[in-house]
Design a protein around this nucleic acid. Structure first.
Length: 261
DNA sequence: ATGTCTCCTAAGAGGAGA
């Protein structure tokens, strides 16, 4: 089973790229973030034409998350239970014996911003949710744009970014608290090239100069860890015309019957 | 280095968010 995540920065602007990626990589589940469209405006027919189902939690202009899958997701649930939020940032579904949650964590803007305080509150709520989900679904994958670079090696210039939003200690602690509930950073289960990133700023030719951050992650529960056989970032779509600022990340899992078989 | 991209309102640029 292949599970992937991609912040597409508008699903309608990026539709052809998403469809091409589905054709080329045939993931069993693709978690999407930053749809930037209402649920009714999600390009459902186009993904259905490729044989995909979709669970969508859309929102006008901002945010919005989805799960595309070769077999329909079971037990769909949008949002974080008990955390009232008009921002559509979370959607979950079950695929075979794996529970998958697509997350678009708040950016935070800057340490002085109200959005930063919201980000930390949001992470605390997500931690509580994941703790309870892990009890109900020991085989859990949480994939998405976490807007946190967990370590200095995930940052092209850790000195310049020290203490800045996406890299600050409270954010890293909040990300670490998710892992402490029983999740692993899938990317770090494997040997990886140095200077591996998932997001590059649109400005300054950042992608060409590999001035990036690794902020998109696939978290794998401890029960599922032994079945994770690969995790990688696909930089190719970031080099396309009119790219998203994020690259897809994907992980492979063995030992489970594919839900479509 | 205020750089780049997307989407909104609202009718032409400008602001918000990332």
């Amino acid at each position: 089973m292949k599970i992937a995540t991609w912040n597409v920065n508008s699903v309608n602007v990026r539709l052809e790229q998403v469809l091409a990626w589905l054709r080329a990589h045939a993931p069993d589940v693709l978690c999407l973030q930053e749809l930037k469209c209402e649920t009714e405006r999600f390009p459902l027919a186009a993904v259905q034409d490729l044989g995909y189902s979709a669970l969508v939690a859309g929102q006008k202009t901002y945010n919005g998350v989805a799960l595309l899958s070769r077999s329909p997701g079971l037990e769909p649930l949008a949002g974080i239970p008990g955390f009232e939020d008009v921002q559509q940032r979370v959607i979950a579904g079950t695929y075979g014996d794996i529970r998958v949650i697509s997350v678009y964590c708040p950016n935070g803007e800057s340490l002085a911003s109200d959005k930063y305080a919201y980000k930390l509150r949001w992470f605390a709520a997500l931690r509580q949710y994941l703790a309870s989900e892990l009890r109900r679904h020991p085989r859990l994958v949480v994939a998405g744009d976490f807007n946190v670079a967990p370590e200095d090696r995930d940052v092209y210039d850790p000195v310049a970014w020290k203490g800045e939003v996406l890299c600050s200690e409270p954010e890293r602690a909040a990300f670490g608290a998710l892992l402490s509930e029983g999740l692993k950073d899938g990317f770090r289960l494997f040997e990886q090239a140095e200077r591996s990133y998932s997001w590059w700023h649109y400005r300054m030719n950042a992608f060409k100069r590999n001035m990036g951050l690794r902020i998109d992650h696939i978290l794998v529960s401890e029960a599922l860890g032994p079945r994770c056989s690969a995790c990688a970032i696909d930089k190719a779509p970031r080099a396309a015309e009119r790219p998203s600022d994020h690259a897809p990340v994907y992980a492979e899992f063995s030992g489970s019957s594919s839900p479509s078989s």
